[in-house]
């Protein structure tokens, strides 16, 4: 079936089989491999994308279900040559080790800070609870979220 949606700010029309998951569409058909598949059942958050601005697991959505909607993946975050403040914060605080979970964390952080520009520690925990990282121990990720909040404030 043919679906039309906004992908990273661009109108996209693509033909998809009924049973195709969004993550498969992104990775296999559109070569957007920044979105990762970890567990395939909604526990690890590596496949997180923003659907109409809200974080969802792209392994638990059919491609057909995003018809008419807006999808943002990690590839759509940077504006021209400049990285998004959240991306900069993750780099500057060294909140990345193997990097497999990072796309998901950055998008979860982006959505958290859009809703709540100044989150408390507990709110950060709740905001990124759907993302697992097996390398960092999360301390650096906390730093990244707080740094990102500051970068965003500086920009505004």
């Amino acid at each position: 079936m043919k679906i039309k949606f906004i992908l990273n700010g661009k109108k996209t029309v693509v033909d998809v089989p009924g049973g195709m998951r969004l993550i498969d569409l992104l990775r296999e058909k559109l070569n957007l491999t920044g979105t990762r598949e970890g567990c395939g059942k909604g526990e690890c958050g590596a496949c997180t994308v923003l659907l109409d601005g809200k974080p969802v697991n792209s392994c638990l959505i059919l491609a057909a279900q995003v018809d008419g909607r807006d999808i943002l993946t990690i590839e759509g975050l940077q504006k021209g040559d400049s990285l998004d403040p959240v991306q900069r914060a993750y780099i500057d605080t060294a909140a990345v080790q193997c990097g497999f979970c990072t796309s998901g964390f950055i998008l979860a952080t982006k959505s958290l800070l859009n809703e709540n520009p100044d989150p408390l520690d507990e709110e950060i925990k709740r905001g990124i609870a759907g993302n697992l990282c097996r390398c960092t121990g999360y301390a650096k990720i906390f730093d990244a979220v707080k740094t990102a909040a500051e970068y965003i404030k500086e920009e505004n």
Partner: peptide, 9 residues
Amino acid sequence: IGSKQIRNR
């Protein structure tokens, strides 16, 4: 329930 991602769907 679950996570933000799960609660959103």
